[in-house]
């Protein structure tokens, strides 16, 4: 049995306050050591960049509208004239004669898909969309209108990246 050194008497042990401790950050800061140098990129503060693109006010809003019938068939399918008349009917029902006076031009119509490309002044777009949303029948046939696309730029309606595929992939 090895002889262990007896602990020093209580009054001779070093005070807990004076025992060496791990260095604190405050102590390090005041220790006059040079701060570690970080690379310049990491030191830059994050910034929020804001870009504003402005141009002349849009004159027209272009909408691609599709009409879906409750009972699809040749009897209920609309031609160009009836498609435009259905839009007029929707405006008149919801907003009256004043609402029906909003300019709406049918630029293109696909009878097979019952889709039309419509142009309206930019300020009339909310009125037209509200009327189309509330349309539920035309000439006693139940139907609904969906706005597939809406943009003040006609070019952006030409193609949709979700639908369009490059020529190579199509083959």
């Amino acid at each position: 049995m090895s002889a262990q050194k007896p602990p020093p008497p209580q009054d001779q042990r070093p005070s807990p306050l004076k025992r060496p401790r791990s260095p604190s950050p405050a102590a390090e800061a005041s220790s006059k050591k040079p701060a570690p140098s970080f690379p310049a990129v990491a030191q830059a503060k994050s910034q929020t960049l804001k870009f504003t693109i402005s141009g002349p006010a849009a004159r027209f809003q272009y909408l691609r509208i599709r009409i879906t019938h409750a009972r699809p068939g040749n009897a209920t399918a609309l031609n160009e004239l009836h498609f435009r008349s259905a839009i007029n009917h929707a405006l008149r029902e919801t907003f009256g004669l004043i609402g029906a006076s909003h300019h709406v031009d049918l630029l293109k119509f696909d009878a097979a898909r019952q889709e039309g490309l419509v142009r309206t002044p930019y300020a009339s777009c909310p009125t037209l969309r509200a009327a189309l949303t509330l349309m539920r029948e035309y000439q006693n046939n139940e139907l609904r209108a969906d706005v597939l696309d809406s943009s003040p730029f006609l070019f952006s309606i030409a193609h949709n990246s979700r639908v369009w595929k490059p020529v190579q992939e199509r083959k």
Binding site: R92, E93, T94, F95, G96, L97, I98, G99, L134
Partner: peptide, 10 residues
């Protein structure tokens, strides 16, 4: 007149 000129909204 409200119904005719301003529709259901009016």
């Amino acid at each position: 007149s409200i119904l005719l000129n301003f529709g259901d909204y009016g």
